[in-house]
Design a protein around this nucleic acid. Structure first.
Length: 877
RNA sequence: GGGUAAUUAACUCAGUUGGUAGAGUGCCUCCGUCACAUGGAGGAAGUCAGGGGUUCGAGUCCCUUAUUGCCCACCA
């Protein structure tokens, strides 16, 4: 017996992980003898630390992966990290800043050198943390979005899409972060309600006929106004259409135009049009051929067009403009106004709509087939409701801005000819311009959106564009596990990318989970200081306890609240398993026979084996449907309640007894149950089960439980008759304990019982359990309860009555009360049953089996009632 | 404005195709016993948010109201 007395996960978890990794048991070979099962990890950012959300996401994947591996699939979990363009670049900029330097100071190549060094030094942290969590990734296939393999895929895809005219360069309105100084995609802007103002500004007509008042939330952009728009159907304002306005400050003459974009009745009904700084105005400008006047710089300061605000930050300029308007008596009024303001997802700076030349992916042709595969259910979301979110996004998708004005990332493989200006796009540097043959070329400075490379992850990690063995064997992957917040960023893009470049879906199932929140339901974040560090929890309670805590009571797709208090019950459960194993090991001398059917099994043994069998079947069904929480609950219940609380207690009489043959048999059963329990639990709690497995494994079985065979239902262990019988024995034991508790009889005090029953045989066989577990000193079978001479407390069960002589302890009053209570309960049961069975609809429409069960139950209850009533009568005499 | 989810025991949450409501924690009694006090035995505790409907039967399906959360959307 080698298990220490106390369950101390810190003593073995790291050691076990090393053994797994050394033995390569997570490294599959593509082989025809097995079916493939593959999952790609949502690559965490190299800048990241493992947070509780990762812990949940990866625990779920690992459970699925380990289950499949044990079921005999060639199971591959591809790990890797994401280069996280903006986040990493910001980190490096900070590093430089500490030295008083800027990007521009050191230049592109030195900057990238520094970034790669930083990645080597810190980028591996999260990958080590995944090991601590127990993730059974194949580290020999670890990938990085900027690795040679993945970069090759990125270039290949970019070039292909360009030649298919699905990537283009264009001057468009995009989202711009003035802090990161780069373009952003629509998905990278987060909108939130902000309190602001609606300023009413007087715009004078050129003909001195008065003014038109416009309402705006952004007065500072008025330097870029090139029109005022009015809805032609507006009864009050339409008359002004065609008039001219002299824009305050700049005195530029701008027209009053008609456009139905303006909503009648909102504000003043007149809208200032600033094509360079508002997406809607940009569209209006295109329709009316208006000039586009840019008034802002890349960093959010105003440019020379902004008159007295030139050089000021946009928000300072806003205040200045208002002050000047007041001075000029052009501000009619100010209203409070809440509106949606977009912020850069990465840095939180208010983003700015900006007209600029960028690279775009034309989405419509790509989105169409991606919608179809989900509509056709070739890809399903679990839970299904997330497919609505997917459709909503995909069906309203706009072209994807993929260029970023950053250095860290995949540099766009496009070269501009210095003489003719032609763009040459190729996977490697072209020697000359594809149009004029000139050799003077300049590469595009920008890099690609990080999500451009993540979108290729399910096939780039497997070797694409080369048709490698892995790619052939493992693609499409089998399931993708992720939180709902990156369905747009990642899942949707992987789906259309897989279809476009592999001609095949990347995965048939998308398992969506929720976000982990704190105990108050707030999103965990570093700034709020309410985050729990999973590594600290692992140090304190063990990785298994963390995994199991995250899975406990988890419902698919919904957020979970998590606090450290959830750790204790999990740890206690694992401790329970640990000690149950110690109990068995301390009684184990030689390996028992492995075939239980050699023995003549007892009722109790058949009971536990039947329950085990049932648990196995249910767990397999739950796991197949990704109902991880339910599967775990069943395993937990089986191990704690059935195995520990009942079967181990039952086994003691034989293990501590003198019948060697019986003892041997009991041990064989215990070992079977324990081994099976360990296997069932292994996907959820890999470390403790592996540690115990070492001591208890069948020498014929796999060295690692991680590669052993997952249990499957076995018809040989279906003993439903004995299962029911033993449930009655348990009832008897519970009832006696109950009576003792009610009468304040110490559990240590043994009592005598009388049993009256028609079916004595199995009762007699199982009396030893009743003696032991209910602490009964002796039992007498009787045929006529009237022959009992002592005062007794009666227990009335199905086909069974038990009388416990408690002598002077018996309190007639209390007994009458107790029996009355039971009679009430029974009567309401009978009423319920009768109503059901007197209902013609029920008899004719309910399943026959159910009708039969209800009929039997009613009869039994009627019997019980008769007994209870007669007992009451006796007591009253 | 549209969509979506939630509302179940004191608390945190499960509840798989509709068939008499479950767990963990907490609470109350008792038990230091030879796997485990990170434990054991027993117990109390729910009009499944309100209202309507479908059904023989509804926590579960439909409608509706209320509260809450999240996502999407160009109202200046």
């Amino acid at each position: 017996m080698k298990l220490p007395k106390n369950y101390n996960p810190a003593e073995f978890e790291n050691k076990i992980y090393k053994e797994w990794e050394k033995s390569k048991c997570f490294t599959p070979e593509p082989t025809n003898e097995k079916s493939p099962f593959c999952v790609v990890i949502p690559p965490p950012n190299i800048t990241g630390q493992l947070h509780i959300g990762h812990a949940l996401n990866n625990t779920m994947q690992d459970i699925i992966i380990r289950h499949k591996r044990m079921q005999g699939f060639a199971t591959l979990w591809v790990p890797g990290t994401d280069h996280a363009s903006i986040a990493t670049e910001a980190k490096i900029v900070d590093v430089l800043k500490a030295d008083g330097k800027t990007k521009a100071d050191i230049g592109r190549s030195d900057f990238l050198k520094l970034a790669h060094e930083w990645k080597e030094k810190y980028g591996g942290k999260i990958v080590q943390q995944l090991r601590r969590l127990g993730c059974s990734c194949d580290w020999t296939r670890e990938q990085f979005t900027m690795s040679d393999t993945c970069s090759r895929a990125v270039n290949d895809v970019f070039v292909k899409l360009y030649h298919k005219k699905l990537i283009y360069r264009g001057n468009r309105m995009i989202n711009w972060c003035p802090n990161c100084k780069t373009a952003l995609s629509d998905a990278e802007v987060e909108y939130s309600q902000k309190d602001g103002h609606l300023w009413y500004i007087k715009y004078p007509f050129t003909d001195n006929s008065g003014h038109l008042t416009v309402a705006t939330t952004r007065p500072e952009t008025m330097f870029g106004d090139t029109a005022v728009a009015i809805n032609p159907g507006d009864p009050d304002n339409a008359k002004h259409i065609g008039q001219s306005i002299s824009l305050p400050f700049t005195k530029r003459i701008i027209p009053v135009i008609a456009d139905t974009y303006v909503e009648i009745g909102f504000g003043t009904g007149a809208v200032k049009i600033t094509p360079a700084h508002d997406p809607n105005d940009f569209e209006v400008g295109l329709r009316h051929n208006l000039p586009v006047i840019v008034v802002m710089n890349e960093d959010g300061t105003m440019n020379d067009q902004a008159e007295f605000c030139a050089g000021d930050d946009r928000f300072i300029a806003r205040k200045k403009v208002i002050a000047e308007l007041i001075k000029a008596n052009l501000l009619e009024k100010t209203e409070n106004h809440t509106h949606n303001v977009g912020e850069c997802q990465r840095c939180g700076t208010i983003s700015e709509p900006r007209v600029s030349t960028q690279w775009f992916v034309k989405m419509e042709p790509l989105a169409k087939p991606a919608i179809k595969v989900v509509k056709d259910r070739r890809i399903v979301f679990i839970p299904d409701r997330f497919s609505h979110i997917y459709f909503n996004w995909m069906e309203n998708i706009r072209d994807w801005c993929i260029s970023r004005q950053l250095w860290w990332g995949h540099q766009i493989p496009a070269w501009y000819c210095n003489s003719c200006g032609e763009i040459t796009v190729d996977t490697k540097a072209p020697g000359k311009c594809s149009a004029c043959g000139c050799t003077s070329l300049k590469r595009d400075e920008d890099v690609l959106d990080t999500w451009f490379s993540s979108a290729l992850w399910p096939f780039s990690t497997l070797g694409y564009p080369k048709m490698t063995k892995d790619l052939k064997y493992f693609y499409p992957t089998n399931v993708l596990v992720t939180a709902y917040d990156i369905i747009f960023f990642w899942v949707a893009r992987m789906i259309f990318s897989g279809l476009a470049h592999m001609g095949e879906i990347p995965f048939p199932e998308v398992l969506i989970h929720g976000l982990v929140r704190d105990t108050d339901g707030k999103k965990m974040s570093k700034s709020a200081g309410n985050g729990v560090d999973p590594i600290e929890l692992i140090d304190k309670y063990g990785a298994d306890a963390l995994r199991v805590s995250l899975i406990t009571g988890m419902a698919p797709g919904s957020d979970i609240r998590f606090g450290e208090e959830k750790m204790e019950p999990s740890r206690n459960f694992l401790n329970k398993l640990w000690n149950a194993s110690r109990y068995l090991l301390s009684n184990l001398n030689e390996p028992p026979s492995s075939d239980l059917l050699e023995f003549k099994l007892t009722t109790a043994e058949r009971w536990i084996l039947h329950k085990m069998n049932k648990t196995i079947s249910e767990v397999n069904v739950n796991l197949k449907k990704y109902e991880l929480g339910l599967a775990y609950a069943k395993i937990y219940d089986f191990i704690w309640n059935d195995f520990c609380d009942w079967y181990i207690e039952i086994s003691k009489s034989s293990l501590y007894g003198f019948d060697a043959k019986l003892k041997n048999q009991t041990i064989a059963v215990l070992v079977t149950i324990l081994r099976t329990s360990l296997k069932l639990l292994h996907p959820f709690a890999p470390f403790i089960t592996e540690e115990i497995w070492k001591e208890i494994r069948d020498p014929q079985d796999a060295t690692f439980i991680a590669t052993s065979k997952f249990p499957s239902g076995n018809a040989k262990f279906a003993f439903s008759k004995d299962y029911k019988r033993f449930e009655i024995i348990k009832d008897v034991i519970r009832s006696i304990r109950n009576v003792k508790a009610e009468y304040a009889v110490a559990p240590s005090k043994a009592v005598k019982i009388y049993i009256q029953t028609l079916d004595k045989s199995y009762m007699k066989k199982n009396m030893s359990h009743i003696y032991k577990l209910a602490n009964v000193s002796n039992a007498e079978f009787i045929t006529d309860k009237n022959l009992i001479k002592e005062q007794t407390v009666a227990i009335t069960l199905e086909n069974l009555e038990i009388f416990i002589p408690l002598g002077e302890l018996v309190n007639i009053e209390k007994e009458i009360q107790r029996i009355n209570k039971e009679i009430d309960k029974m009567q309401s049961e009978i009423t319920r049953g009768s109503n059901l069975l007197n209902n013609e609809g029920f008899i004719s429409k309910a399943p026959k089996q159910l009708v039969q069960i209800e009929t039997e139950k009613l009869n039994t209850n009627k019997d019980l009632l008769v007994k209870l009533v007669s007992r009451l009568k006796e007591l009253n005499e």
